[in-house]
Write a protein that binds this DNA or RNA. Structure first.
Lengths: 248, 248
DNA sequence: CCCGAGAATTGATTTGAATCAAGGAATGGG
DNA sequence: CCCATTCCTTGATTCAAATCAATTCTCGGG
């Protein structure tokens, strides 16, 4: 089924990817700026797979033998405490890679991962990829830049958890989703509200209430659609502590 | 002053390090298993520097031009919110490296760093180090393993913040410091209690009270010394939810 | 088109931790 | 050796968010 589809690219694309998929890979921090040949080389034995919502990709402490690039859909990374409840560490979507970091060192996944929307993923086995990395410094630098990015995200997350209120975390989340940084926008929430709540370290009830608190700042919510009257104003309010932070 | 000190090693040690310092470097995940020559090679223009407590090493968003290895002392990484208060992201000590990840990608420090105890640091300029990394896959893999480790730490931190109580986080902190994993131990707190509180995402007052809550589990505290009657029991209580977690 | 299950909201209540406010050790300099 | 500054502890109070408890809303299937 992979032949005769897309004329020129289909034959030379890494593992039989559509043009659009190839586009995604090209933009990936991990591979950005590499030649088509290089990408082909790195991803030689990678494969595209389709997963249904709910599929468990790997479990915390599993040996890490592969990592993933999301071509479509959403994936949740989480941890389970001994007591059974879960902490959402990250949620990724199209154009993002995850678990690359795990294939180094002791090479066990530090989190579990499930598919939260039907997804198409590029699955990259570690073995060949690692070999190529160690042979080519250029690849390795890209990889480190990508890991560095994930590190930053987590740093931000720790910061937010320790010093922002629920409403502020939600505001920050909306701002990150906003396509523009001022004026009025309508944002479509990318997945279930309760999952967003988890991602932001709060209960669903608190999520709902936080959304209400933002109403005073021009935020309205109908179903999965959130309209923000003035993005800049929302950001300003967050920074100024118009929503309560711990005082100075 | 570097000659005639330690007989054999002094001459061939990286940049005139004592045997003990060389020992530290050898154990560093970043360099572990590399030959003396390789280390010498990588750290060619690194230098040992002494810093007084309170010294600001770099500020969040500074261009990241160097990273550090701690030969002695303690260093705090933190972020400042717009509103002025700080979030402690990590505290590192002898034998640990930090800010390696920052020298990749956009190459700005994602955090600020200050010295919290008089310290001796190995300062490693990024330029030469990066060049060597890209030339030698072995170096790069080590580096990634090290970054992977930091990533794991942050993941754990996010998890703890979202689903453990203050008392549990403190218990986990003590357990990590414990030299043995059962029986009775006395632990010396490595730095000020208020800094530990910050590191654990709580106020100093809450730290004090959490310590009291642990008294019921055989934890006593005199000054900077904490005695644990039974390490295994403490761990058990934490896991079992003897200290309150969110219920299942 | 209606129905049932899961998702989301809303309300009432509890509670863990922050804040406010003093006291009490400890530490270092004069 | 004493004082002062800083750190730590303890108490009273407040507050944000979790928990408990109903509804209401939504959406896909019969």
């Amino acid at each position: 089924m992979s032949n005769a589809m897309s004329h020129a690219e289909s034959a030379q694309g890494p593992i039989g990817l559509s043009n659009q998929d190839a586009e995604i890979l090209a933009r990936l921090p991990l591979l950005a700026g590499l030649s088509a040949d290089s990408v082909q080389d790195l991803l030689r034995d990678a494969a595209v797979q389709t997963y249904d919502r709910g599929t468990l990709l790997f479990v915390q402490d599993d040996p890490a033998t592969r990592f993933f690039v999301i071509l479509d859909g959403w994936v949740k990374l989480f941890r389970n405490s001994e007591s059974g409840d879960e902490s959402v560490i990250a949620v990724f979507t199209r154009g993002e890679s995850f678990a690359e970091a795990a294939i180094f060192g002791d090479s066990r996944y530090p989190v579990s991962a499930t598919v939260v929307e039907d997804s198409r993923l590029l699955v990259v086995p570690a073995m060949h990829f690692l070999r190529r990395l160690s042979e080519n410094g250029d690849y390795a630098l890209k990889m480190m830049a990508s890991m560095s990015r994930h590190l930053r995200q987590l740093v931000t997350q720790v910061e937010q958890l320790t010093l922002n209120s629920s409403a502020e975390r939600l505001a920050a989340f909306l701002l990150k989703l906003s396509p523009r940084d001022d004026g009025a926008v309508v944002i479509r929430l990318p997945f279930d509200k309760s999952l967003i709540a988890g991602r932001l370290g709060m209960q669903p009830e608190t999520f709902s209430r936080s959304l209400n608190k933002l109403r005073g700042l021009g935020v309205e919510c109908k179903g999965p659609l959130v309209s923000v009257a003035d993005v800049a104003a929302l950001r300003g309010a967050g920074a100024a502590g118009g929503l309560k932070t711990r005082r100075l």
